[in-house]
């Protein structure tokens, strides 16, 4: 059981993600999580405001079910497959976090400086979370895909547009990590 409850290595996770992509192709669909955000807009009535949302959302139901599965997977991992330990980061990263004003990580996933109650219920903290989501949602649709659609599905199919998108992901990510995070926090 220890093998399951300890963090999984990259060479376990990568092949499973490739398998997920293959299974969705085999089921006659494609791997791409962010399409669900568009479907959610359509279901919420977005088709009244823009043609972009005039889609038959029933054809996307399988993807919503996939995401529901992902939520359940997260729940199962938390309840049954976790040893509750912290994260084994590069010590250099921990030093960088401290310079940012963040504590050394006590939990595996999220810093309380961004996601903790104290932050979430402050105006700045709330806007950071909402704004971060906004950038992801706007950017992924403009680019026509997210990490699953471009970095995994697109690159696997040797698509140049996906390579350009992934380069964009890194331009934005590096800019945020090295320039903007020290200004925001």
């Amino acid at each position: 059981m220890d093998i399951i409850t300890q963090p999984w290595a990259w060479y376990v996770a990568g092949p499973i993600i490739a398998l997920v992509m293959f299974l969705l192709l085999y089921f006659g669909e494609t791997f791409g999580v962010s399409s669900n955000l568009r479907t959610m807009c359509t279901i919420a009535g977005g088709d009244k405001y823009a043609d972009f949302f005039k889609i038959d959302w029933r054809k996307q139901q399988w993807n919503l079910v996939f995401v529901l599965g992902a939520v359940i997977g997260g729940f199962i991992a938390a309840q049954y497959l976790s040893n509750g330990q912290g994260i084994d980061l590069n010590p250099k990263t921990v030093v960088a976090l401290e310079q940012l004003g963040f504590q050394a990580p006590t939990a595996a996933y999220l810093p309380s400086e961004i996601f903790g109650e104290h932050s979430v219920f402050s105006l700045k903290g709330f806007l950071i979370l909402l704004g971060a989501g906004f950038l992801v949602g706007f950017g992924t649709r403009y680019a026509g895909g997210c990490t699953s659609g471009h970095a995994i599905s697109g690159l696997s199919n040797l698509q140049i547009p996906s390579l350009i998108a992934v380069i964009g992901f890194f331009i934005g990510g590096l800019l945020m990590t090295h320039v903007l995070l020290p200004i925001i926090f």
């Binding site: 704004g131 706007f138 950017g139 990490t147 890194f170 934005g172």
Partner: peptide, 22 residues
């Protein structure tokens, strides 16, 4: 343009939220 600009906007959000859509 759409992949580079859209991707960059996405990357900004990804690094701030620490999470992509999945």
């Amino acid at each position: 343009i759409r992949y580079l600009v859209g991707g960059t906007i996405f990357g900004l959000g990804w690094a701030l939220a620490g999470a992509c859509p999945g």
